Simulated scan of single mutants.
Amino acid sequence: MTPVLQARGLVKRYGKVTAINGADFDLEPGEVLAVVGDNGAGKSSLIKALSGALIPDEGEIRIDGEVVRLSGPLDARRHGIETVYQNLALAPAQDIASNLFLGRERRRAGVLGSVFRLLDTKGMRAEAARVLGELGIGISSMTQAVETLSGGQRQGVAVARAAAFGNRVVIMDEPTAALGVAESGKVLELINRIRERGLPVVLISHNMPHVFDIADRVHVHRLGKRVALVSPRERTMNEVVGLITGALRIDENGQLAEVAHAVTTGLRTGETGT
């Protein structure tokens, strides 16, 4: 299968610091791909490059096999890539429907929309209710202000927005961070529902139990590049942690091998960044 989203040899430097150091990336159709790595491994920079928030110095990004240049987040959106950031990027004082269509508001038909620029509030609320209903997000009123919602419900609104407008890829940055057990479970259910709709998901997470619960494959990022791409059904959690820390590596035969005196020298010397 042709990967939906692919990168080869991405490099991004900030002066003497190399944040992305020849990174590769492959997202297959309909899968949940977890991206894991220590703080400073470069995974955030990689995701920013894939979502258009960062322009790499070298390498290429492909969508459905075609090389593209993502000049910004809006450009990534036009290619069907939606990102749910850790801060959710919601407007707390506005209602749910307004947040779902934030920056993409619909105007009323005819003169009322084209001349007087009136919004189609009724239509947006109906569409918001439909999308949230399909994803099983239990919020009854689309007129409710986002600031009155729980953390899990706010995450649900952000995920629903990405699912509503993303037609190729949904990228989720630490979606269960700061959530309780019950709310985290609901977010994982949302990810499952998005996958069931045929939309691939990139999940950035430090929570290894969540990764092993939901991911089809795990992309291990270290020192600015991918060091392993493994299946959670074939590798244990401890083995993936070993790959993250550098205590283990994948040899030329695809087997795990121990690394003697493994230390994160790249992180300590500034060879790789965020």
Rank of each mutant, 00 (worst) to 15 (best):
V11K: 05
G15E: 07
K16I: 11
V17M: 10
N21H: 07
G22P: 01
D26L: 12
E28G: 06
G30H: 00
G30Y: 00
A34D: 03
V35F: 04
K43C: 06
D57N: 11
D57K: 09
E60K: 10
E60M: 13
D64N: 13
G65N: 12
E66A: 14
E66K: 15
V67N: 09
S71G: 11
L74K: 13
D75P: 02
R77W: 02
G80R: 01
T83K: 02
V84N: 04
L88A: 12
I96Q: 05
I96Y: 00
G103F: 09
R104K: 11
R106H: 14
R108S: 07
G110L: 07
V111D: 00
G113I: 11
S114A: 14
V115D: 08
F116K: 09
G123M: 07
G123I: 14
A126S: 13
A126R: 13
A126M: 12
A128I: 05
A128G: 10
V131G: 04
V131Q: 06
L132S: 05
L132F: 07
L132I: 13
E134R: 12
L135W: 05
M142D: 07
T143H: 14
E147Y: 09
Q153N: 10
Q155G: 07
A163N: 09
A164M: 15
V170F: 07
A177S: 15
A178I: 08
V181A: 14
A182R: 15
L190C: 10
I191W: 06
I194E: 03
I194W: 05
R197N: 14
P200E: 04
P200A: 10
P200V: 03
V202M: 06
V202T: 00
S205V: 07
P209K: 09
P209V: 10
V211A: 03
D213A: 15
I214P: 02
R217E: 08
H219K: 02
K225G: 03
R233G: 12
M237H: 12
G246A: 11
A247M: 14
L248P: 06
R249H: 06
E252I: 03
N253S: 14
L256H: 03
E258P: 00
V259M: 08
H261N: 15
A262N: 09
L267I: 14
G270V: 12
T274S: 13
